[in-house]
Amino acid sequence: MTLGDRTKIVLLLAPALLVIGVLFSGGLAAALVQSLGYLPAIGRTEVSFAAYREVLGSRDFLDSLILTLYVAGASTGISTVLAVLAALSLRRSSGRVSAVVFQLPITIPHLVAAVGIALVVSQTGLGARLAAALGLIGEPREFPALLYDRYSIGIILTYVWKEVPFIALVVLAALRGVAGELEEVARTLGASAWQRFWYVIFPVIAPGVVAASLIVFAFTFGAFEIPYLLGQTYPTILPVMAYNEYRALDLGARPVAMAINVLIAVITAAIAAAYLRLGRDLGRG
């Protein structure tokens, strides 16, 4: 590579790196500094890990972390299984039709999905009305509470509605490509339907599925809107907890909010690294 090329690459990358470096990394660095208690605006200049000690030792944080892992894990797991099943059963359908059907939920803002699903699953929603019409329930409160509930069903349902198509499209692309051809080979070599899935299709699509699931997990781990709208009041998921601490009138709570933010960032960055690592291993084939 010539020196000219190197200069050119640096210049081409500079604007994007600047935007992300200042607004994102700078923001994270500021969050880190504030999490260490350094807040000259309110006259605090000594640095300590007090906020981390407080956060990591508190029952609230533990509950919140467990809830976050549960919501992200359940949403990702359910979405992955449903997506693989959907892709397997739809792979012979018209590419154009399935593209439209799957792209729609992907493109719809999460907020709209949450509102629509809330109107379906709430105790006076479409689902409850259907149940009443079928004589299963008499009054709204007899319908199971799926919003603001302990099990975060409404949140998980919304994520599943949004993320199944995302993973399914990844799987569909693999199935219509090389996995489909390899399946034909396996067939002529005597593999039964189950053997073809277990020995050929599954291993071939697995890395793509894992990568897509990692993205979904990282996203559902750090997302704010849907749990804020459809979640219970305690415990809340981590980003909502950070936001609530942040909004507290007491500026002294700020290091705690920032410590939670830093922890969210560290966890999701680790997932990002795993994702890229997987992508690179795939690229090497």
């Binding site: 880190l32 750090g222 920032m258 933010n261």
Partner: peptide, 12 residues
């Protein structure tokens, strides 16, 4: 894309 911008935005 993977680390929520919420964290960096509160920081900034």
């Amino acid at each position: 894309i993977l680390v929520p911008p919420l964290a960096s935005t509160m920081g900034i």
